[in-house]
């Protein structure tokens, strides 16, 4: 089993979530992995290049957290965010990287806890993928 610490980038919409809440909720996880949080005025503001740059500078996984469906302050920002995330996943596939390293997490009714649960599953997925690539290399 690969227990290497991972570099996780968290881009998030600042209207629905503040960095402090995320940090607090990450709790113990910060001991195992490195988290970099980047707050955005709107998730739709995100350009592809920011996401790619995260990978270029060593991210093992990038999560993009958007506000709830239908609650974007700028009406369609979270819809755009989804399209951007899909475009990055396509580029990762072209490059030969696991596209699951890019994940869009849309907040729901479950509050920050369900966001953290989803993040845990994301980390687990990347850990397994990295372990596989270690074994095969």
């Amino acid at each position: 089993m690969n227990n290497q610490p991972l570099n996780i980038y968290l881009f998030h919409c600042t209207n629905s979530l503040d960095t402090e809440t995320i940090r607090r909720s990450l709790g113990e996880r910060e001991k195992d992995h490195t988290f970099k949080t980047i707050s955005l005025p709107c998730s739709g503001k995100l350009e592809l290049i920011y996401l790619l740059k995260a990978f270029e500078s060593g991210a093992d996984g990038v999560a993009l957290v958007t506000c709830k469906h239908g609650e974007c302050r700028y009406l369609e920002g979270n819809l755009r965010a989804q399209k951007r995330a899909e475009a990055v996943r396509a580029i990762l596939e072209e490059i030969g990287l696991d596209k699951e390293r890019m994940k869009l997490i849309q907040q729901g009714d479950g509050g920050v806890q369900s966001l953290i649960d989803e993040l845990d599953r994301f980390i687990e997925r990347i850990r397994n993928a990295t372990a596989e690539s270690f074994e095969s290399s």
């Binding site: 592809l48 290049i49 790619l52 740059k53 990978f55 270029e56 580029i91 072209e94 490059i95 030969g96 990287l97």
Partner: peptide
């Protein structure tokens, strides 16, 4: 240009 360059850098590192 920035997107393709970034993707190429990642791809180059990978391969």
């Amino acid at each position: 240009v920035s997107i393709i360059s970034s993707a190429l850098r990642i791809a180059s590192r990978n391969s």
